[in-house]
């Protein structure tokens, strides 16, 4: 088991290396002038572009620039973000907790709700439970996230005034700004920091602001998870080992949950892992519509302004997330499936 993890780990380091080379290669397709413009903040500096190219070696050969870049990156220097008006690294740690916070709540819901709905749907195939969950899934899956988020916002904010966009109410945000000595941002996640600072009102309010984004995200994403689980359960239930289990006197619960579901979980792990990894970029539509300044929002803003260092940073981050997710998926797979563990 340990050698298995170690092997995967080495393999994934190589993957990460590949991703970084690829990313840098794409960046290199821009002319040195275009890249130099990233350092320019005022029109007056435009004449400095040739000097900037010289100073930063922007016309050096690929590998020299790559090594230089990697050195900087590993020291934590990712460049300057125009959008955030601060270094990319620092900006990242501002936006990342917002996204992570949503995922911390949304991911378990997506995973467990998907497994649960998919299981009952597959076990009670063609019953009304099955039909209604499938209709729910089809609607969720085919709705454009952006539109769906807007509709929910219109109904629950615009009409019922139940929830509002943003991450925190204005009064509470002002109270934090006005008394910075009373509030320490330990994690950057308001629901957690609120509790750590002894301010349950902040935590609750932040949670209240999370309801709509999480709902939107879960409804849109849970469908895929559910469908994989459902078809997995149906397939497993038709297999011969289920017949063996029935012939030895197993009751339905044992057959469904101990035999079929454990087998059907294998493909779900992959799908759920990928979904969680993908949502780490912050489900752009959700963050933009609900005005949550997380990674997704930052990515959208930076993309429209061609803020290259930010885009590079987010791509690299996504590469890292996928690598870590895949490692986790592999380990989970190996713990469930003995066929993988042993060879």
């Amino acid at each position: 088991m340990h050698t298995f993890i170690l092997r995967r780990f080495f393999f994934l380091t190589f993957v990460l290396f590949g991703v970084s080379v690829l990313l840098f290669g794409i960046l290199m397709t821009f002319s040195p002038e275009r890249r130099a413009a990233a350092y320019v903040t005022t029109p007056q500096q435009a004449k400095d572009i040739p000097r900037i190219i010289k100073q930063f070696g922007l016309d050096d050969p690929f590998y020299i620039q790559y090594v230089r870049w990697i050195k900087e990156v590993s020291r934590g220097n990712l460049g300057w973000s125009l959008v955030a008006a601060r270094p990319v690294g620092e900006a990242f740690w501002r936006y990342f907790p917002i996204t992570l916070e949503m995922n911390l709540y949304a991911a378990p819901i997506v995973i467990f709700l998907g497994i649960w709905l998919g299981s009952i749907s597959g076990i009670h195939r063609d019953s009304w439970i099955d039909h209604s969950t499938r209709i729910f899934a089809i609607i969720g899956w085919s709705l454009p996230t952006f539109l769906f988020a807007l509709v929910l916002l219109m109904v629950f904010y615009g009409y019922f005034h139940l929830f509002s966009p943003g991450v925190l109410s204005d009064e509470l945000a002002m109270s934090i700004i006005n008394h910075p000595e009373q509030y320490t941002a330990y994690t950057g996640m308001l629901t957690i920091d609120g509790l750590l600072n002894g301010r349950p009102d902040i935590a609750l309010n932040a949670l209240h602001h999370l309801v709509l984004p999480i709902t939107t995200y879960v409804i849109v994403v849970v469908a895929l998870n559910m469908r994989v689980m459902r078809s997995g359960i149906i397939e497993e239930l038709s297999k011969d080992y289920v017949l063996t289990a029935r012939a030895k006197g197993a009751d339905r619960r044992t057959i469904h949950y101990k035999h079929a579901r454990r087998n059907a979980l294998l493909p779900v792990i992959t799908v759920a892992g990928q979904l969680v990894a993908m949502s780490m970029e912050g489900s752009i539509a959700v963050e933009v519509v609900y005005n949550r300044q997380g990674i997704g929002w930052w990515l959208a803003e930076s993309a429209t302004q061609l803020d290259m260092p930010v885009l590079m940073c987010i791509c690299l981050f996504m590469g890292l997330v996928f690598v870590v997710t895949n490692l986790t998926i592999d380990i989970l797979y190996a713990t469930i499936d003995p066929r993988i563990r042993l060879n």
């Binding site: 297999k239 011969d240 080992y241 017949l243 063996t244 289990a245 029935r246 012939a247 030895k248 006197g249 035999h259 454990r262 087998n263 469930i336 499936d337 003995p338 066929r339």
Partner: peptide
């Protein structure tokens, strides 16, 4: 089932749960 009447199957490769 399994106590008074038992059954064995045609395909031993499929008749056992692969992850148990």
């Amino acid at each position: 089932r399994g106590d008074q009447i038992s059954m064995i199957f045609q395909e031993p490769n499929a008749a056992l749960n692969p992850i148990m």
